[in-house]
Computed example of a mutant assay.
Amino acid sequence: MAPTTTPDNWQKSSYSGPGDGDSCVELASSPTALHLRESDDPGIVLTTTPAPVGHLLHAIRAGAVTAPRT
C-alpha cells in the first residue's frame, strides 16, 4: 500500500466563522481522493473517493440522513 500524503489545500465551510480554530469540517482534494478532517483535531484525516461523498450529499439533500437525537 502506498503511503498517504496529507494535502495542503484545506478548505472549510463558508458556514464557519473566520480564522483558525473554529469548529468545522475541512475538505481537501488530491488527484485520486477527497480528504476530510475536523478542525478541532486536524491530525485525523478521513480519506475517500468522490463517489461515497456524492452519495452522502445526495442522501442529506433528500432528507434521508438526519442528525442523531441527544
Rank of each mutant, 00 (worst) to 15 (best):
M1N: 12
T4L: 12
P7W: 02
P7Q: 02
P7T: 02
D8I: 00
D8E: 02
D8L: 00
N9P: 06
W10M: 01
Q11W: 06
Q11S: 14
Q11M: 13
Q11I: 09
Q11L: 14
K12H: 08
K12D: 02
K12N: 04
K12L: 07
S13H: 08
S13N: 08
S13D: 05
S14I: 05
S16T: 05
S16Y: 03
S16C: 06
G17R: 05
G17W: 06
P18M: 13
G21H: 11
G21W: 08
D22P: 07
S23W: 07
S23A: 09
S23N: 12
C24G: 00
C24I: 06
V25P: 01
E26I: 03
L27Q: 04
L27S: 01
S29N: 05
S29I: 01
S30V: 08
P31A: 10
P31W: 04
P31V: 07
L34N: 03
L34P: 02
H35K: 00
R37D: 02
R37I: 03
R37A: 01
R37V: 03
R37T: 03
D40H: 11
D40A: 13
P42A: 05
G43W: 05
I44N: 15
I44L: 15
L46D: 05
T47E: 00
T47K: 05
T47Q: 05
T48G: 04
T48P: 04
T48D: 04
T48L: 15
T49N: 07
T49K: 11
P50K: 10
P50L: 10
P50V: 08
A51S: 14
A51C: 07
P52C: 14
V53R: 05
V53F: 13
V53I: 15
G54I: 11
G54E: 15
G54P: 03
H55V: 13
H55S: 12
H55I: 10
L56M: 12
L57G: 00
L57E: 04
L57M: 06
L57R: 10
L57W: 10
H58C: 11
A59D: 08
A59R: 07
A59L: 07
A59V: 05
A59W: 10
I60H: 00
R61C: 09
A62W: 10
A62D: 15
A62N: 10
V65E: 00
T66R: 09
T66G: 04
R69V: 11
T70V: 14
T70M: 07
